[in-house]
């Protein structure tokens, strides 16, 4: 088993090693060890408040923007600890893109929404091509090719979210983080985004937080189940931990932990 791990290590694009994240004095997640494989879709599932979104945001240093948030441990990306003092968070975010829970297009045209990220990243080349390609990859091209100059807000919620995905693709990141990208969308838009993810998988590594276990089952290769337990000193606060991490198939068919079994069968959460 250990041997296997060593072999596979080359494929690990992102590794969490003993990561604990706190908001002020309050510890949100504790002692996370986790390896994300290149080219996989990994989903993070678990009950509310178990810290899965916190973990996701820590992967491209989005937590820096939340006051009082601090991280202990190492997050290795490409062999570099992204929490090293010498690392530039802006550079990290250029290589690890993020799609948020609420669709948040810029108050600009559809075209500009995509061109913005590329331009500030020093893109040289045909911008029209890039916009077309990104929209095609996000499966939005056919719906908006005739109104590229319309505002991003003129699109429906599902289209806006795919625009946000296209915007992220346009900067050619290595990893795309998605924080419950479908929670604000209807089932049909959700299905379209999932199809998009299957397309994207060919080129990108995707890590997705989802509340929807069916979605985790449909889209992901690996699944990490997070749970929260009460503090040992028992003052009622909860701290999140990684309960089980395995291939999606195993998590949903034969979980090792009893708590995972209970969660996926809907006994709590």
């Amino acid at each position: 088993m250990i041997k296997n791990n060593k072999k596979a290590q080359k494929n690990h694009i992102l590794s969490l090693e003993d990561v604990s994240i706190s908001y002020g004095k309050f510890e949100a997640v504790k002692n996370i060890f986790c390896n994300f494989k290149k080219g996989d879709i990994t989903s993070l599932i678990g009950p509310s408040g178990c810290g899965k979104s916190t973990v996701l945001r820590s992967l491209n240093r989005m937590n820096d923007l939340i006051p009082n948030c601090s991280l202990k441990g190492t997050v290795l990306f490409d062999g570099t600890n992204i929490y090293d003092k010498r690392v530039d968070a802006v550079e990290v975010r250029r290589r690890i893109g993020m799609v948020f829970q609420q669709p948040n297009p810029f108050p600009k045209s559809i075209y500009e929404n995509i061109a913005f990220g590329a331009r500030i990243n020093g893109f040289v080349g045909d911008m029209d091509d890039l916009v077309e390609l990104s929209l095609k990859k996000a499966a939005l091209w056919s719906e908006c090719k005739d109104k590229l100059n319309d505002s991003g807000y003129s699109l429906s919620g599902g289209q806006q979210q795919r625009l946000c995905i296209a915007r992220t693709i346009a900067i050619e990141p290595e990893i795309i983080l998605m924080d419950e990208p479908c929670s604000a969308l209807d089932p049909i838009s959700t299905l379209k985004i999932e199809e998009t993810m299957h397309e994207l998988k060919k080129k990108y590594t995707i890590i997705i937080v989802t509340h929807n276990m069916q979605q985790a089952l449909r889209v992901s290769d690996m699944t990490a189940f997070f749970n929260a337990i009460e503090y040992e000193d028992g003052d009622g606060g909860k701290v999140g931990y990684l309960a089980e991490f395995n291939s999606t198939k195993k998590i949903f068919s034969s979980p090792k932990e009893k708590i995972t079994q209970e969660y996926i069968s809907g006994k709590f959460g």
Binding site: R93, R94, M98, F100, N104, G117, C164
Partner: peptide
Amino acid sequence: ELRYASLGVGAS
């Protein structure tokens, strides 16, 4: 969200 979006695509 708008700030996150911009920082998320690697803007300073």
